[in-house]
Amino acid sequence: MTVAQHQHRPLLTIAEHDIEHVENFTNLGSNISNTGDLEKDEQTRIGQAAGVFKRLRNIWSSKSITTATKLRLYMSLVIPTATYACETWTKTASITNELDVLHRRCLRSILKSPLSDIVSDRRKIMTGHVLRLPTERDRQVWQ
């Protein structure tokens, strides 16, 4: 912004102190934009939640802490960080995807199980069910 443009903006003065005009600022952990765009705030929250999760990596990798306890810690520390003030967010496909990616990544790390392994295990179980079916049943299904 040029000096000439800045001079046309009304100045805010509190107790004889001019308040500086800024494009955005952080208040109580939320990123406030002069345009009202909340996407930066949403992305900041997701980044903060990822940081909290990363700082707790010793807990997630600990063999002495139960999975149930890890999930309770995740739900009480990481999720609130990611969703603080989410009631005011604009729902966009981009933010929805970023939230889901964060959530899946965290859960995979806690559960120590890639989704592809879960799918493989379920396919093996289904194969076992099919192989145990009586042969008469196979004929009935296909007729």
Rank of each mutant, 00 (worst) to 15 (best):
Q48C: 14
V78N: 08
W142H: 13
N58P: 00
Y74H: 10
H129D: 07
S109L: 06
K91G: 01
G36C: 09
S64F: 11
A15D: 10
T66F: 03
L71H: 06
D18P: 03
Y74D: 02
G47L: 01
I118M: 12
E16P: 00
S64K: 14
T135F: 07
V22Y: 04
T66G: 11
R104H: 09
R9P: 00
M1N: 11
E87I: 03
P114C: 04
V119Q: 12
Q43I: 14
L12T: 01
R9W: 08
H8S: 13
D41T: 04
T66M: 08
L133G: 00
E20Q: 08
S109T: 13
M126T: 11
H8E: 14
T88L: 02
A85T: 04
I65V: 13
S109Q: 11
V78H: 06
T83P: 00
T44Q: 14
N34T: 07
S64H: 14
E98R: 11
T83L: 15
L133E: 07
I125R: 13
I19R: 04
K63D: 11
K112G: 04
D37G: 14
W60F: 05
C86A: 10
L56C: 09
V101C: 03
N97F: 07
A15P: 00
T88D: 00
R104P: 01
K70D: 04
V3W: 04
T96W: 01
V130Q: 10
G29R: 09
G51W: 05
W142K: 15
F53C: 09
F25G: 05
I59H: 03
H17A: 05
S62Y: 01
D138I: 12
D117Y: 09
G51A: 13
V141Q: 10
E23F: 04
M126R: 15
